[in-house]
């Protein structure tokens, strides 16, 4: 496993694009230290910012230690292995990742997991805006994988979500799941207004309630369906026992279908 320990607090934003476990595993310490990183508006070698070391453990593992609030694009494009970050991160963590597991023991900025295709992103703190969204940066919508945030999440999460699962332990901001076309969003905290605007398909489990619902979502009544049991099983499969337990404790859920403004069939369960 490769370990990067931040030497000093970052003054400018540092792009970690390309620093992926699959690229580092076979490189020597000196080779890793020479990898150029974009820092502000200049490129500097990685060794200028991090103390690099190799520790025991899997070769396709990467550990980053330090306050990375200005560290962007960590694990972006990752295809496998593990990345563990002890600290906060900037924007676009795990963007467009297709495999592996990224664990952040802290909070992350905007655009975490945007355009994600597979793998898992686990955030123990909060997440900014655009979590698991399509940010029009060429990666497209989220089409797979699992994002789990223990804390609260900003606005415009799950925009154009196509497949995959987003789990939010806290509250979810405004305009979540707009234009959603598939996938599942589960929130234990309250969801702010504008949920599911122009969404076509997909499932939102608003287990902590919603601030308000669009009038273009039709009230379909209370139901206890087999799909709820399967969603619970699916949550257990990905280790989200607390989400599964919360779902199981709901005897029946209230279903809203919409967005009728676009003849949508996405569902919000309260």
């Amino acid at each position: 496993m490769t370990r990067l320990v931040l030497k000093n607090p970052l003054q400018f934003r540092l792009s970690m694009a390309g620093i992926l476990p699959q690229n580092l595993g076979s490189q020597t310490l000196s080779e890793i230290e020479k990898i150029p990183l974009l820092y502000g508006n200049r490129r500097s070698p990685l060794g200028e910012f991090f103390t690099v070391s190799k520790t025991s453990g899997s070769e396709d593992g990467l550990e980053i230690i330090g306050d990375g609030s200005r560290m962007d694009e960590v694990a972006a494009g990752m295809i496998g292995g593990t990345v563990t970050i002890e600290g906060n991160l900037g924007h676009s963590v795990a963007a467009a990742m297709t495999g592996g597991v990224v664990t952040v023991m802290g909070s992350v900025g905007h655009g975490a997991g945007h355009g994600m295709k597979g793998g898992g992103l686990i955030i123990s703190g909060d997440a900014g805006d655009g979590l698991g969204s399509d940010l029009n940066e060429g990666h497209g919508p989220m089409t797979g994988g699992v994002i789990r945030v223990a804390g609260k999440v900003g606005d415009q999460a799950a925009h154009r979500l196509n497949r995959g699962v987003i789990l939010v332990g806290g509250s979810l901001g405004k305009g979540a799941a707009t234009r959603m076309n598939g996938g599942t969003v589960v929130a234990l905290g309250k969801i702010d207004s504008g949920l599911g605007v122009m969404s076509q398909r997909g499932t939102i489990l608003a287990l902590g309630g919603v601030q308000s619902l669009l009038p273009s979502f039709a009230d379909c009544g209370n139901h206890d369906l087999v799909i709820h049991r399967l969603l619970g099983q699916g949550l257990r499969q990905i280790g989200a026992e607390d989400f599964a337990a919360r779902l199981a404790s709901s005897e029946s859920l209230h279903r809203y279908l919409g967005d009728c403004a676009v003849a949508g069939m996405s569902e919000i369960w309260l």
């Binding site: 699992v146 497949r163 699962v165 598939g182 599942t184 398909r201 499932t203 799909i227 399967l230 969603l231 099983q233 699916g234 499969q237 990905i238 069939m265 569902e267």
Partner: peptide, 18 residues
């Protein structure tokens, strides 16, 4: 009708990689 993709155990067993 709607479709749903879920991570689940393979049909042959109730545990293991989903």
């Amino acid at each position: 009708q709607t479709a749903k993709r879920l991570l689940m155990s393979p049909p042959e067993r109730q545990s293991g990689a989903a």
